[in-house]
């Protein structure tokens, strides 16, 4: 845990405000059906749908069915909340309340985002378009598969040449010559991952090696290597079908981020933003030109 003996007392006005405004705020709930508030204000109706909904919420948390006592408690809590909530609305306690404002704004933001997501479900067509819009992102990096032998940095050039010659003449012995802790065989992996495992610019140097024969020496962060390149797979865009799941995952991850900005941009377009205050920064004024 961070910290242990903080002496500072809470000075944050927000918190004090909360304690006073808490009832109003607490009255708000995601689950309150709007209809009830708007109909007969002297009647609090708990119909079967409402009670089932409350029970489902309860069950989601406790992971069992509520018993009779639990249901009584659920209803009691609901009534208390509902009564204070309605009285608060009558007294307009929700108006210009920062917390209520913030909460409603958040709800609206969430609703707008849900809508935006609903309107843009990850259909194949949409994913395919997303894939092609971001080809650079989905391009598979340069990759190599190879075998290698590591030699100490002070190994002489002559010695490396001799070893290379004997490897070319008698490839079967290669594995037995591996004296280091590094694996002999390396499966197809990206240039970046290979560089992180070898260091010293090793993976860049692989580009110039022939495929299918022993070559080198190549320098790494660990020493000198003789390398048998088995596969040199250039950077390329895979087929959409082969990476569809990955595209879908990325779409979900990043599209939501972008959608949120779009929603805000669209909504603010409905408003004219005016400033009568004086000390508004230029950057803001430029963003919202004043007529």
């Amino acid at each position: 845990m961070t910290g242990n003996a903080w002496k500072a007392i809470v000075r944050e006005p927000l918190l004090h405000f909360l304690l006073v405004g808490g009832l109003v705020f607490g009255a708000y709930s995601w689950v309150t059906p709007e209809a009830q508030v708007e109909t007969d204000s002297e009647v609090i109706l708990i119909d079967q749908a409402e009670l089932d909904h409350l029970k489902t919420l309860w069950k989601a948390q406790w992971r069992r069915d509520p018993n009779t006592e639990d249901v009584a408690a659920i209803i009691d809590r609901y009534l208390r909340q509902e009564v204070f909530y309605r009285e608060a609305l009558r007294m307009n306690l929700d108006h210009n309340d920062q917390i209520v404002k913030k909460r409603l704004a958040q709800k609206m933001e969430a609703v707008a985002n849900d809508l935006s997501t609903l309107m843009q479900p990850p259909t194949d067509e949409r994913l395919r378009a997303y894939f092609h819009e971001r080809e650079a992102f989905f391009t598979l990096p340069q990759a190599y598969a190879f075998k290698q032998l590591l030699f100490a940095p002070d190994t002489s050039e002559e010695q490396l040449k001799q070893t290379l010659a004997s490897l070319r003449a008698n490839a079967e012995v290669a594995a037995s010559l591996n004296s280091s802790s590094l694996p002999f065989e390396w499966e197809l992996d990206s240039e970046t991952a290979i560089e992180n495992a070898f260091g010293g610019g090793f993976s860049k140097a692989l580009a110039s090696l022939p495929v299918g024969e022993w070559a080198g020496p190549v320098r790494s962060g660990l020493g000198w290597h003789l390398v048998y390149l088995e596969q040199n797979q250039p950077e390329h865009l895979p087929s959409f079908e082969s990476v569809r799941d990955f595209v879908a995952r990325q779409y979900e991850y990043y599209a939501v981020l972008e959608a949120q900005e779009q929603v805000f941009d669209e909504l603010i377009g409905k408003y004219e933003v005016r400033f009568s205050a004086e000390d508004v920064p230029d950057a803001i004024l430029n963003e919202f030109p004043q007529s």
Binding site: M1, G3, N4, A5, W6, A8, V10, R11, E12, L15
Partner: peptide, 12 residues
């Protein structure tokens, strides 16, 4: 600052 106030009051 707000976070610290809450942390102090409700955790520490």
């Amino acid at each position: 600052e707000t976070a610290l106030g809450l942390y102090n009051k409700y955790v520490l």
